[in-house]
Design a protein around this nucleic acid. Structure first.
Lengths: 333, 333
DNA sequence: GTGAAAGCGCTAACAC
DNA sequence: GTGTTAGCGCTTTCAC
């Protein structure tokens, strides 16, 4: 043993309780003793042992923040939002990338049960029976960033999510208003919940404006720059006519810009382009991108705030919807 | 108390020692008892308490990884390298962004002393007396990703770094070989160590090829897209002639591409461009960027490996230099 | 083979 | 005011 409260007690000749009182400021300790104790503590470079506190007090002041991919620009603002709120409240954020793998999600929920952290915010592409059950059974405070319909009152988790359908409606209507007649969509994988929600918004907007919908205008681009490039290239080379294009994210939109540049297609003159996420990419492109802001910062911020409420014992279920906004720039002017 | 070893002991009627033996697999426990214990453990959904282990055993199996900016693409590969190695060895990586602030660095070293984690990998723009002393006094295993000359044998830290001077030599010589006569540099802040090292490489390469050097060709662009755009715009509008440009990172290079596009300057025909970092940006630009690969993945990987060695008690100082490589693409062809 | 008990470093309840 | 002590959940030593 070294540099513990016991050592300081031994050196100063006071009891461990007195030393603890002096160090923590809780409870009375005479000025004289306090001074001596603080001096010795400083000399020994005393540091509390965080594991001892965690064991004794039952909290770690740490929060797990799980995201599918730590290197995806989409999450940057969300990370910022989460960390700002937690830091302000004296919590440390532990980032944990799940690689979009269910097994990693399950593993991390396990960790939570081991009192590794006090709570968790989890972003996942796929909230299913398995991970939701694990969260539920962990009985630890958790916030998930998706809509989840099966929530029960005694559940330990809250959720906050952004309305993808509405985001897509905004994008589609914007292009319609700009006079586009043939609007293609480069969307994510058709099995993903998000993709379905977005396509709903696309169809709703078309219907609302009395425009016909053509399934062949829905392309699968997988959120990926290279894939977007190839998919759209094929589409155009088939001789398809388009004057509006909605792309699943800014990075994929960059792939589109690259193809159009090479193919001599002018944006926004020939095709008006809208993408999703409103990340920094949207600003550094040529032309700059019109993009649907998915409120990532607020999602992170509110997720952290809801979690803090849970930790403070208020256990009313929260479920928040955020409405996206459209940021118009050169690519659709 | 609930779901602890004590509870299982109570329910099964065995001692806590027996239960612990059954659960951990260390020491003998009869098959019959083990089965019963495991059944009860499963039923109670028993989970070890990580704080108790940390307190009792003195290790957490967690490693802190501090980086100035978690949202900077430059660190992505490094994060990947660190996490892969640590995960393979049963450690969790805790990412911590320091916002380039000394106070946050000091705070996190404090945390390390509190046995929050078993060790740390720290990336900083500025290793100075203050943070190095704090690391030294923490007496915890640490790896820093910069050269540090004052290292002493008994120090608890190792270092690994990339040779910026050589990287700049590669970039400069490449442009010289491509026939460039007027090579400008858009570098970082002149007070930073990295900037100085890189400029050394620039001067060395010019000297080696008998080319004159002109201080006015060294521009301060601060690693930033917008700033790069403005700085280079001003430079060109002053009527300066350039046929080669070296930019501090890929993101800043995108700002240059944007300006050149608007100004009708063709790359690589009018100006050949080389940037640093070889991130994914370099691939998604038009034209694609020639870029100096700073070996981020390896830096992360080796940093983690060195740290693991320290944790396993081998305490020989390591200091590793990585040599950058040049990846040639369209922007300098 | 199995159990009792000490102790990791700390907090807090309770004596005095 | 200050000290003694129990106990957080676990591992490990040492009896039996």
């Amino acid at each position: 043993m070294k540099n513990g409260i016991k050592d300081i007690a031994q050196i100063t000749g006071y009891s461990t309780a007195t030393v603890a009182r002096a160090l923590s400021g809780n409870g009375y300790c005479s000025k004289e003793k306090k001074e001596k104790i603080m001096a010795v503590a400083k000399q020994l470079d005393y540091q509390v042992n965080s594991s001892a506190i965690a064991l004794r007090c039952g909290y770690t002041r740490r929060i797990l923040f799980c995201i599918p991919d730590i290197c995806n620009i989409f999450y940057f603002k969300m990370i910022q939002g989460v960390m700002e709120v937690l830091e302000k409240n004296g919590y440390y954020t532990m980032l944990y990338p799940t690689d979009k793998k269910l097994e990693k999600e399950i593993e991390i929920i396990q960790l939570l049960k081991q009192k590794f952290c006090d709570g968790m915010i989890m972003v996942s592409f796929d909230f299913c029976q398995e991970n939701i059950s694990a969260i539920r059974e962990s009985n630890c405070p958790v916030v998930i960033t998706n809509k989840y319909d099966g929530q029960m009152e005694q559940d330990c988790f809250d959720y906050i999510f952004v309305d993808h359908t509405y985001g897509m409606e905004l994008a589609t209507e914007h292009l319609i208003e700009k006079g586009c007649k043939k609007i293609a969509v480069l969307s994510g994988s058709p099995t993903e919940q998000t993709t379905k929600e977005r396509l709903d918004g696309y169809f709703d907007a078309l219907k609302k404006h009395g425009m016909e919908m053509d399934r062949s205008y829905i392309l699968n681009g997988q959120y990926n720059n290279e894939c977007a490039y190839e998919t759209f290239k094929q589409f155009i080379e088939q001789g398809r006519k388009v004057d509006g294009l909605i792309v699943s994210n800014d990075y994929a939109a960059m792939g589109i810009l690259r193809y159009c540049h090479e193919a001599g297609i002018h944006i926004p003159e020939d095709i008006k382009l809208v993408s999703f996420d409103n990340t920094d990419y949207a600003l550094s492109c040529m032309p700059t991108l019109t993009s649907v802001d998915m409120r990532q910062y607020e999602i992170g911020k509110y997720a952290a705030e809801i979690l803090l409420e849970r930790l403070q014992g208020r256990s009313k279920n929260h479920n928040i919807v955020m409405q996206p906004t459209l940021v118009v720039r050169q690519s659709s002017k």
